[in-house]
Design a protein around this nucleic acid. Structure first.
Ligand SMILES: [Mn+2]
Ligand SMILES: [Mn+2]
Ligand SMILES: [Zn+2]
Ligand SMILES: [Zn+2]
Lengths: 132, 132
DNA sequence: CAGCTATTTAGAACCATTATAAACTGCAAA
DNA sequence: TTTGCAGTTTATAATGGTTCTAAATAGCTG
């Protein structure tokens, strides 16, 4: 299994549940955005056994902590995650809550001129809200 | 009272509660960022009577709808609002959840090259996450 | 003032997320 | 292999920000 090493190297035991979640999250043609509920549904569709919601939360948070997932800052009652962990940006469709990737090349280089004493910039994220 | 007209013009009745909330939100030297809980505290500190939490939510949403307040997209369990309704951006201090304004002049002009069929850009917001 | 609608309010409901604690499992050491 | 244990899973409860409800109150127009 190709995810066993990845998990072991991160100090995460390669449990059946984690490996199955890896399949759903990372064994895909394209990266994608998801909420926990959407992921829960995807998992249900793809596997036979049941993975508890608590485990889905635990796993997503573990993967986020290890840098295998990113959270996307949007105003929503649900948290959005991204399997695309490269530096990039997003269109946010206000109508249906859909997110679309904007690669760095789709946005000019962003140069933050203001500095905050004693703080480092961890990330720069652009959110482009779309309406009809 | 200087907010009576503003409210009437927006089709909002200038109630005692709304006028008091206007004082807290808009009768200030500087604009500021807030969560509902922080606003509730500010209101308690500034006025003698009590305004129910439901009214604070109702009013903030009404003002947001009229364009007198903006929501700021961040990952937090609470919604952040801004009394600065100009186009601008934010530093987000991951340590304490504090927001700091970044004026447009502090960020180079942002040119979104990708277009989405049949959609208009409503806003472009940059969030710069800060760590120690 | 009268009548009507908007607004306020306390409290309940909602619901995404987190906490709990008991059962289970991967894995290293014996 | 077996054993022991820390790490993990799980059902379920708790949490907490936000929204809903429906009754009381207040602004406004005639
Ligand atoms: Mn969240
Ligand atoms: Mn919200
Ligand atoms: Zn993305
Ligand atoms: Zn601001």
């Amino acid at each position: 299994m190709k995810y066993i090493e990845k998990l072991r190297n991160s100090g995460l035991r390669p449990t059946k549940q984690r490996l199955q979640i890896c399949e759903v999250l990372f064994n895909t043609e394209r990266t994608f955005h998801f909420t926990i509920n959407e992921l829960e549904q995807k998992i249900k569709d793809k596997i036979d056994n049941k993975i508890s919601l608590a485990t889905i939360y635990n796993t997503v948070h573990a993967f986020e902590k290890k840098g295998y997932l990113k959270q996307i800052p949007v105003n929503s009652n649900q948290t959005y995650f991204d399997t695309n962990i490269t530096d990039h940006h997003h269109f946010y469709n206000l109508k249906d809550g859909n997110l679309i990737d904007l690669e760095n090349s789709d946005v000019g280089p962003i140069n933050i001129k203001k500095k905050i004493n004693g703080k480092k910039i961890k990330s720069i994220e652009v959110l482009v809200k779309l309406e009809d």
